[in-house]
Simulated scan of single mutants.
Amino acid sequence: MIKIDKNTKGVAMFDRAQWFLAGMSIAFSVHLSHPVTAVPVGKAVQIAQTNSSNAAPKVYEEAEKLEEQRTAEALRGAIVKYKEALKLYRKAGDRNREATTLTRIGVVYDNLEEKQKALEYYNQSLPLSREVGDRKQEAITLTSIGDVYSDLGKNPEALEYYNQALPLSRGVGDHKQEAITLNGIGQLYLDWGEQHKALEYYNQSLSIFQAVGDRRGEAYTLNNIGQVYSALGEKQKMLEYYSQSLPLFRNCSITAAWGI
């Protein structure tokens, strides 16, 4: 660096000022020779939303593929991707997909046994689903909240959410989700020692899973019915249902509980 003494400092400052003004002059000349067409603010926002809307599904799909791996590391990676998709859906103004993504993040946290984090995201999703009138997504989220409360041993709270979800699933004709919710209610009654009540809900669930051809759901429900008969001391019945469940588990290659 050149040291400037007090006698030359003014000259140096002048030179810098001249260079600055010369630079501004050149820049201004270039600007005039290459006029820029202004983009209306509304159009710019629309372009940004379109870009986000186009990018979000790809990122969401990447998150799904990571989630399918079911390892803790992959699930952590899925959360990062889902959160990236969430930002894009918010930027695009897509409230439906925002709600879906929030629930999906909750599911991953649930699978990582981080129940409070799961609830945090479910509770963000729920009012959004209601706001946009997406009854199917609302039912899924309500059931997911019920599942968390069931896992936490808060069965009365779980039943409250399941009972809110059930008529919504039935109303929109989402039979698979209806069966999942019925399964959850059956588990609550089994926990309460009300085996016959549990059987009532499990049998409803089983019929639906069989009707829609969901072999994975059918396998879990047959297994759950086997547990009921085990609790009742009916060992032959228990073996009968476990024996039906086992080949379905093998065929489906189930390694983890079903997601949404």
Score class of each variant (00 low, 15 high):
I180E: 03
N203F: 13
R97L: 00
Q116H: 13
A256R: 03
N251C: 01
E120T: 03
L199G: 11
G146E: 03
S245H: 08
L190T: 00
Q49K: 14
G173K: 09
Q164H: 11
M238S: 12
Q244A: 05
R135M: 03
K154N: 10
I26A: 05
P40Q: 15
E240T: 14
I2Y: 14
I145A: 01
L119I: 14
T181C: 06
L21G: 01
L21V: 03
A211I: 07
S52G: 10
S53T: 10
G171E: 08
A139L: 04
P127A: 06
S29Q: 10
S207I: 12
L190G: 01
E200Y: 02
Q18A: 14
A38I: 05
K115D: 15
S245M: 04
A257P: 08
G184H: 00
M24Q: 10
R76W: 09
S129Q: 05
F249W: 02
A56P: 01
A63H: 08
A211N: 12
L199F: 06
L152F: 09
V108D: 10
N54D: 10
H175M: 12
S125P: 09
R250Q: 13
A17W: 13
K235I: 08
A257Y: 10
E114I: 07
D174P: 12
G77H: 02
K58F: 13
T101D: 04
K176P: 04
A72E: 04
L188M: 14
T143I: 02
Y189M: 04
S144D: 13
E68A: 15
Q46G: 02
E218T: 15
S205W: 15
K3N: 11
S150P: 00
K6I: 14
L128E: 15
N183Q: 07
T101C: 11
L239R: 15
A22Y: 08
P57M: 11
Q210R: 15
G193I: 02
A179P: 07
S52V: 07
A118G: 12
V132D: 05
R76I: 05
L75N: 12
G193Q: 06
E98L: 02
N251F: 11
L206V: 10
Y241C: 05
K154F: 12
E62F: 06
D134G: 04
E240Y: 13
E113R: 02
Q227I: 13
E64G: 13
G77M: 01
L239H: 13
I180N: 01
G217R: 00
A219G: 05
A257W: 09
A219F: 03
V148M: 09
V11K: 12
Y109W: 11
L21T: 00
T37L: 04
A72G: 01
V80F: 13
